[in-house]
Write a protein that binds this DNA or RNA. Structure first.
Lengths: 197, 197
DNA sequence: CCTACCGATCGGTAGG
DNA sequence: CCTACCGATCGGTAGG
């Protein structure tokens, strides 16, 4: 009798919307996502799209959340088995570089960080929170590497984290802007100098 | 008799518009600039604003041009007197870092590169052209440094340029997103490792 | 999930 | 440089 969809179908639609918005945001930016265009691409009404979230900002946060989740599954989660310290961290960065190079995808989080660096609000807060978690992870592994003697005792972990981040940002730019097929190779070479294997 | 402005006044208004648009674009992105908001901030009509350029895209190109011009005057132009090679290049990057740290300005060109990396068109082309000119400058100085023996003969200039670019991108992110007062210091420390003084 | 609608704003034009 | 206006689209709501 009721045309209402089941909980499962509703969740599936929600996922479809987020998926579509993530693809759109990768090209147009997270602010460039519009309800109307999403509705067109998904063959839904605008009300059907926005009804799942309430506001565009909530949708943006859901998209960001999905992207962060994907990063976590693809990068740190893949190297949990590696030896803590320099080895695990080097492998994590290697995974990240490969992830960025896949389909010239680049790094969504990094792009959104640039887009929102001057737009205070929940989206910016969420970006900073995600980057902080990653930064804490990096610093933790660096601490282990120093403690175990893999890195010199006078290593400045914040400085090294800064430089590692630079390598990742250069990789993202090379991939997204120049579609440079050598990006991941260059990144690994730079990594090898910062975290000697 | 005629309320028409002189050529000089017209040029001054054009400059005011570009200035205002550059400030706006630094916060909202170059696509986030709108004729209506500019008109409001400048106490002009929309037609008065857009009349100087014809289309928003031409205005965007003018803003980009101004930003590039400012970068050139502030960074490479300031170090023309330095000894070619590693010294000049290190001083150029140092100027760039300081420029980015001024008022947490960051790097406009870098932000626009991220914003337009997936938006084909004249703006993207202009961004790539500007970055290519900078890249050629860097590679040229690196070549001089290798030839003069300041850098090892087996140096890979493209690799080193990639890593130097990474330091700059990390600096821009630290400045714009985190307002990190240590950004320029970290950048110089990284630079010293890549281009030994 | 839909249709129908809201006020606001978008880039831009006509005409002066 | 202005006023007045264009069609399109924006995010979002009411009501079903």
């Amino acid at each position: 009798m009721s045309p209402r969809k089941s909980v499962i179908e509703t969740a599936a639609t929600r996922t479809r919307i987020i998926e579509c918005a993530l693809a759109s945001a990768s090209a147009e930016g997270l602010e460039g996502v519009t309800i109307g265009r999403l509705a067109g691409e998904l063959a839904m009404s605008k009300a059907g799209v926005i009804g799942h979230f309430g506001t565009k900002e909530v949708l943006q946060l859901a998209v960001l959340d999905t992207a962060v989740d994907r990063f976590v599954r693809r990068v740190p989660a893949r190297v949990v088995g590696a030896r803590p310290g320099a080895e695990r961290l080097a492998r994590a960065f290697g995974e990240w570089f490969d992830y960025m190079a896949d389909d010239h995808r680049g790094c969504f989080l990094t792009s959104v960080a640039t887009e929102f660096d001057d737009r205070p609000g929940p989206v910016r807060d969420a970006v900073i929170a995600a980057l902080s978690r990653w930064s804490a992870y990096v610093l933790d592994e660096l601490g282990t590497a120093v403690d175990s003697g893999e890195l010199p005792r006078d290593t400045d972990p914040d400085q090294l984290a800064f430089e590692l981040n630079g390598v990742a940002l250069a990789t993202a730019q090379a991939v997204q802007l120049h579609h440079d097929p050598l990006a991941a190779t260059r990144a690994r070479r730079a990594l090898a100098r910062l975290l000697p294997p």
